[in-house]
Design a protein around this nucleic acid. Structure first.
Lengths: 363, 363
DNA sequence: GTGAAAGCGCTAACAC
DNA sequence: GTGTTAGCGCTTTCAC
């Protein structure tokens, strides 16, 4: 019954996926470790041998089995990342920046999306951790309690993005969503707007939107005005959510003279709806967004918004990971001896990349 | 709520990520294989034992080392995918659909972006294959020659997306870029447009854009008209590229009465530029796009475009992979005996998901 | 339904 | 600069 398919031979003609390091080694007339070294630390192999080995790799079409390497060395070349969604350009930018920075070091990105769910994040993380990633990148600072515990117990660089934190799991890189929203609100007031409304995703479903809401509230309190908030459909990430919000606002009593959306997508949808409805922007109703997506500057009217360094966040996360990895390789033993405490000692960095209020024509 | 004690456990001492299957097995008073079975085929373990093992897993915070499992079983739970970029929403949609469909089967997505480079794709693929993926998803059908050979030599489901193919590496799911562009061009002619121009990315740099260009050319030939083509900057994926194209066209002699962009992003940029320049759309110059990105319907004027089933492509790719995986597991022995030839036998499927011409106000 | 032993393919540690 | 040996943590096979 059991067929003997595992052809026990060397480069016998046909290109086979089952070429192992031994096969390459035999063909090149060296030991397997030399093949391994040619792949990982070529400078430690003499040019002549290196040439022969590379030729053998070419000839056999050898592809190293990373599962074996990872198992033995206890170190993969994979970084795991969880994002709420890839459909939102702004997260895609961060992921792109991250992947770019990582690739330079030969690190692969393993991506999963949580659909904005904290519970899904936890489950996904367990899956991801099984792949033995060398580092983990999360979006936001709001996680299920086991997530913190799980990650802290491992001596593993963890970067939380898109937000700051007083107490990051390990590292954080982002900006203050609270301050950004507060600044925009105050800036709108300075521009002369009287009734400033805020429209964002349900705070309990989207932590970052919740912080923006708080920033807005704080600013309104400072201004001595009363807050006027609207909750967006669809987590505020659709154009339709913006349109529906603006329709509601226009229909109600005391329509605001400016609406600050926690998301450019919704803001754009709102602005385009106004144009269609014949509502002058910004004179009858002004609109501000958040994110500075590419379309913000290209649309009519161009959107006033908060510019966020999306790609920079990704690149910075990559840099932090690489630094941390280099450090722990150097410190190696010392760190292992220090056990749990050590990770803590090097922890606690939160990098603030800031934001920028960009006034265009919509407000 | 989850039981709070994340750290407390056996006499092992410190909270450590190094919990192995043996540790769990000992704690539950079973052999390691039973733990493995609880994780992989729980129905083959008695409820009582299963309960004990699950409790031990909880208590220890055990996370299986997938590298070991993959090495031994020669089968990972990872699907590798290469996309040109994640910044373009349309690819992100496909990836999202793919990830969703895969997750349902407990498969993880390993993503890399090639930056539209065929050479990069090859290098990345080698890296990805080392992770022992169970399947590979590529974008497009234009690949470096070694890529075909490499993938064909492995008994591995391969799905090429976003295009059709007479001779796919294995499976293909998409639509005819050629036919889509041809249809739109003919439809524009039917609508009464006389001078129909086409604007796309440099054909040698973007295969799909090249096919759209050919579809346009074919249609123009059928109509007995002469083609008028413009090459976009930045692979046509920026708003600015659309603006610059439209400016060039307006400045030149014999400005077209409609421009068909191979990409909605450029089309949107062009339309907004027209609005800003006071060029009436569609009366003085009409604009058509390709892709039906979310913003196409929400902008002013709403964009006439070709609707592409982006997410559907991803979901279908996932389904094809899952079917193929199930089949090869069932056929297991037979297929192994058949060796290289077998993969070929089940190959060659190209699924056409079609497209749709959507007329809105811009043309 | 459960277990014991063997070994997947690589690399760390130590020889030479 | 290069080779030998051992073993990473699982799952496969075959017993029971």
């Amino acid at each position: 019954m059991t067929p003997p398919p595992a052809a026990p031979h060397t480069g016998a003609g046909r290109p086979d996926a089952r070429v192992r390091m031994v096969d390459v080694a035999q063909r090149a007339g060296v030991g397997t470790i030399t093949v391994s070294r040619v792949l990982r630390t070529p400078e430690r192999v003499s040019p002549e041998v290196r040439r022969r080995v590379l030729a053998a790799i070419q000839a056999t079409g050898y592809v190293p089995n990373l599962a074996a390497g990872t198992l033995k060395s206890q170190r993969s070349r994979v970084v795991a990342s969880i994002v709420p969604t890839l459909r939102n350009t702004i997260f895609a930018e961060t992921v792109d920046g991250l992947a770019d920075g990582l690739r330079a070091q030969g690190l692969q990105l393993l991506i999963a999306s949580s659909g904005y769910s904290v519970e899904a994040e936890e489950e996904i993380l367990l899956n991801l951790l099984g792949q033995q990633p060398v580092a983990v990148v999360l979006t936001g600072t709001a996680h299920a309690p086991p997530v913190r515990a799980l990650l802290r117990s491992r001596a593993l660089p963890v970067v939380e993005t898109w937000d700051l934190s007083d107490d990051p799991i390990d590292l954080a890189v982002g900006f203050s969503n609270f301050e950004a929203a507060r600044s925009m609100t105050l800036a709108l007031a300075t521009r002369g707007y009287r009734r400033i409304a805020f429209a964002g995703a349900p705070p309990q479903r989207e932590h970052r939107a919740a912080q923006r809401l708080e920033g807005y509230r704080q600013a309104m309190a400072e201004l001595g005005r009363s807050a006027h908030t609207v909750t967006l459909d669809d987590l505020g990430v659709t154009f339709a959510s913006g349109e529906s919000a603006v329709r509601g606002l226009l229909a109600g009593p005391l329509a605001p003279d400016v609406v600050f959306f926690a998301n450019d997508v919704a803001a754009f949808g709102a602005a385009q709806a106004c144009v269609r409805l014949g509502v002058a922007v910004p004179t009858r109703m002004a609109i501000a967004g958040f994110g500075d997506f590419e379309l913000a500057g290209a649309s009519n009217p161009p959107l006033t918004t908060v510019r966020i360094p999306g790609e920079h966040i990704g690149r910075t996360a990559a840099r932090l990971i690489i630094e941390r990895l280099a450090a722990s390789r150097g410190a190696g033993e010392a760190q292992a001896a220090g056990a749990a405490g050590t990770a803590q000692a090097v922890s606690g960095r939160s990098v603030d990349l800031g934001f920028e209020i960009v006034f265009r024509e919509s407000a």
